[in-house]
Computed example of a mutant assay.
Amino acid sequence: MTSSTQQAAEICNTPARISMWAAALGVCLIVAVFATPMFWLMYGGYYTFFMFVSAVVAIPAGHLGRRRGKRLGGRDRGLALLGIVTGWLLILCSLLLVLAYAGVLAGLAFLADSAS
Results as ranks from 00 to 15, higher is better:
residue 90 L to A: 01
residue 35 A to G: 02
residue 98 V to T: 09
residue 32 A to D: 12
residue 87 G to F: 05
residue 26 G to I: 01
residue 32 A to Y: 09
residue 110 F to P: 03
residue 67 R to N: 14
residue 2 T to R: 13
residue 103 G to S: 15
residue 56 V to K: 01
residue 80 A to C: 09
residue 89 L to W: 07
residue 83 G to R: 02
residue 12 C to D: 08
residue 113 D to I: 00
residue 58 A to D: 13
residue 19 S to A: 15
residue 59 I to Q: 01
residue 23 A to Y: 05
residue 93 C to H: 03
residue 44 G to A: 02
residue 113 D to R: 06
residue 63 H to C: 01
residue 49 F to N: 10
residue 84 I to N: 00
residue 97 L to A: 04
residue 34 F to W: 08
residue 87 G to M: 10
residue 103 G to V: 08
residue 78 G to A: 09
residue 52 F to L: 08
residue 84 I to Y: 04
residue 79 L to N: 13
residue 3 S to T: 07
residue 32 A to K: 11
residue 63 H to N: 06
residue 110 F to A: 04
residue 50 F to S: 07
residue 78 G to T: 09
residue 65 G to P: 07
residue 76 D to W: 05
residue 5 T to Q: 10
residue 99 L to G: 01
residue 61 A to P: 09
residue 105 L to S: 05
residue 41 L to N: 13
residue 55 A to D: 03
residue 25 L to D: 10
residue 32 A to R: 09
residue 85 V to A: 07
residue 66 R to G: 13
residue 60 P to R: 00
residue 110 F to G: 00
residue 73 G to S: 01
residue 38 M to T: 14
residue 91 I to S: 10
residue 94 S to P: 12
residue 106 A to V: 07
residue 48 T to Q: 07
residue 109 A to W: 11
residue 9 A to T: 08
residue 77 R to N: 02
residue 51 M to R: 05
residue 85 V to N: 07
residue 28 C to H: 15
residue 10 E to D: 12
residue 107 G to C: 08
residue 52 F to W: 14
residue 43 Y to S: 05
residue 105 L to Q: 06
residue 87 G to V: 10
residue 70 K to Y: 10
residue 14 T to Y: 04
residue 57 V to H: 02
residue 115 A to N: 14
residue 21 W to N: 10
residue 63 H to Y: 06
residue 42 M to Y: 10
residue 72 L to R: 01
residue 111 L to Q: 13
residue 48 T to E: 09
residue 113 D to Y: 01
residue 23 A to T: 02
residue 6 Q to C: 13
residue 8 A to R: 03
residue 105 L to R: 06
residue 76 D to K: 03
residue 77 R to D: 02
residue 13 N to A: 11
residue 104 V to A: 13
residue 86 T to A: 02
residue 78 G to S: 11
residue 42 M to L: 14
residue 20 M to I: 02
residue 45 G to S: 06
residue 49 F to H: 11
residue 101 Y to G: 11
residue 50 F to E: 04
residue 72 L to H: 03
residue 82 L to T: 04
residue 19 S to K: 06
residue 39 F to H: 11
residue 12 C to F: 15
residue 71 R to S: 03
residue 89 L to A: 12
residue 16 A to Q: 05
residue 26 G to F: 00
residue 114 S to H: 14
residue 49 F to G: 06
residue 50 F to M: 11
residue 116 S to K: 09
residue 109 A to N: 15
residue 30 I to Y: 07
residue 81 L to S: 12
residue 88 W to E: 06
residue 52 F to A: 06
residue 112 A to F: 11
residue 86 T to V: 01
residue 22 A to N: 08
residue 44 G to C: 01
residue 114 S to T: 14
residue 6 Q to E: 14
residue 51 M to A: 00
residue 31 V to G: 13
residue 36 T to G: 03
residue 41 L to F: 13
residue 56 V to Y: 03
residue 75 R to Q: 00
residue 42 M to D: 15
residue 115 A to I: 14
residue 48 T to C: 06
residue 59 I to R: 03
residue 33 V to I: 15
residue 50 F to I: 02
residue 18 I to R: 07
residue 88 W to H: 13
residue 24 A to V: 01
residue 70 K to H: 11
residue 46 Y to R: 10
residue 9 A to L: 14
residue 108 L to D: 06
residue 41 L to V: 11
residue 14 T to S: 05
residue 74 G to E: 08
residue 15 P to Y: 08
residue 62 G to R: 00
residue 55 A to P: 05
residue 41 L to E: 15
residue 20 M to L: 02
residue 55 A to Q: 00
residue 28 C to F: 15
residue 11 I to E: 09
residue 6 Q to T: 14
residue 105 L to D: 06
residue 29 L to P: 03
residue 21 W to H: 10
residue 24 A to R: 03
